[in-house]
């Protein structure tokens, strides 16, 4: 099992969700987060002075999936979340040791 964590633009959430559903991937956990990447936030010129918005709202999608599903899922997210501009986000993949269902105790 693998954990897939994608940090994406909030306005892209619906598109990403729909794209994943279309491929049959439903389970996910979503949180609203704030952060910054290599771009270091957004700088705005305002009357000559600079206002720095250093952390920008993002959405984090958290999924735990079978090893063979990792590639199709990350590809789907990458395609549906992309705008081509700075701030499109990142996807992290890491191993999961154990999964226990609370209802089923599997």
């Amino acid at each position: 099992m693998k954990q897939v964590t994608a940090i994406i633009r909030p306005e892209k959430l619906e598109e990403v969700k729909t794209a994943l559903e279309d491929r049959g991937y439903f389970p996910m956990t979503i949180s609203e987060v704030k952060g910054r990447g290599a771009q270091k936030g957004i700088c705005i010129q305002y009357r000559g002075s600079q206002i720095k918005v250093d952390t920008i709202p993002k959405v984090e999608i958290y999924m735990v999936v079978n090893d063979e599903d990792v590639r199709p899922i990350t590809d789907t997210i990458r395609k549906s979340a992309r705008t081509g501009k700075f701030g499109d986000g990142k996807i992290f993949v890491s191993p999961i040791e154990e999964v226990i269902g609370i209802r089923t105790d599997e």
Binding site: I42, I44, I51, V53
Partner: peptide, 20 residues
């Protein structure tokens, strides 16, 4: 406003304030 100002929202870009 510029596209970046619109993206971060007018609260921050025009007023320097935020409810988030």
């Amino acid at each position: 406003v510029t596209e970046e100002e619109e993206y971060v929202g007018l609260d921050i870009s025009q007023h320097g304030e935020s409810t988030i």
